[in-house]
Simulated assay, not measured.
Amino acid sequence: MTPLALEPPAEEPVSLAEARQFLRLDAADEDDLLAMLVTAARLLVEAASGRCLVDQHWRIALDRWPRTGEIRLPLAPVSAVLAARVYDSAGTAQQVAPGVLTLDRAADPPLIHMSQSVAEPGRAHGGIEIDVVAGFGPTAASVPAPLRQAVLRLAARWFEERGDVASRDAASLPRPIAALVAPYRRVKL
């Protein structure tokens, strides 16, 4: 199972104005840098938590349908299944009928249940594609406050302590920021 990002979030969980206010910056001359740091901080918080923050479109590629009839998604939270297709041996996509795949949003990790049998793919690799929306919601206001605070604090840390601090943080989040992310972290067993 391979997740592929199709479309980034329409907005970051922390706006440029919020980041500028947090850092007490009046001038806008470093807005490009600050915006880049907010995006980088979001990506690191998403990686550390195993959660997508603001809604974004992803494609899940599968080689074959699971025998159990359940697809455990590698992304969370997932709010919608947009489309699903199966490729035949000629490489032509056949749409999966709506209602055949049902999303269980309450499960963690999210599950897609197959309500009936579906055509088997005609190619060995990536013969099934499922497009989903992953994230807490379409706006920054949908993201839990501790995760937004983690993004804000991490971006501010990188802004204030320029240099190699970003590469050190990539190995593990600083403790105060890790504490904000911990309740949302997906644990793999």
Results as ranks from 00 to 15, higher is better:
179 A>V: 02
129 E>Y: 05
107 A>E: 00
37 L>H: 01
142 S>E: 01
88 D>Q: 08
105 R>V: 13
33 L>K: 05
32 D>C: 02
139 T>I: 08
168 R>G: 13
38 V>E: 05
83 A>I: 07
8 P>N: 01
19 A>G: 04
173 L>V: 08
142 S>W: 08
109 P>C: 05
136 F>R: 02
107 A>K: 02
35 A>W: 07
134 A>S: 06
139 T>Q: 08
88 D>T: 07
74 P>K: 09
124 A>N: 13
87 Y>C: 02
188 K>H: 15
145 A>Y: 02
110 P>M: 04
42 R>Q: 06
106 A>T: 13
121 P>N: 13
47 A>Q: 14
58 W>Y: 08
20 R>T: 07
31 D>K: 03
176 P>M: 07
45 V>H: 05
12 E>I: 08
4 L>M: 12
136 F>G: 03
69 G>M: 04
181 V>R: 04
183 P>W: 00
62 L>I: 11
81 V>A: 03
8 P>R: 07
10 A>C: 08
149 Q>K: 02
112 I>S: 07
168 R>K: 14
84 A>I: 05
153 R>C: 06
179 A>I: 06
66 P>T: 11
167 S>C: 14
162 R>E: 11
109 P>R: 12
1 M>D: 15
100 V>L: 09
68 T>W: 12
160 E>C: 07
90 A>E: 15
92 T>N: 13
149 Q>G: 05
124 A>T: 14
136 F>D: 04
82 L>N: 11
80 A>G: 03
185 R>S: 11
51 R>G: 06
17 A>S: 05
171 A>E: 15
187 V>W: 15
26 D>L: 08
52 C>G: 13
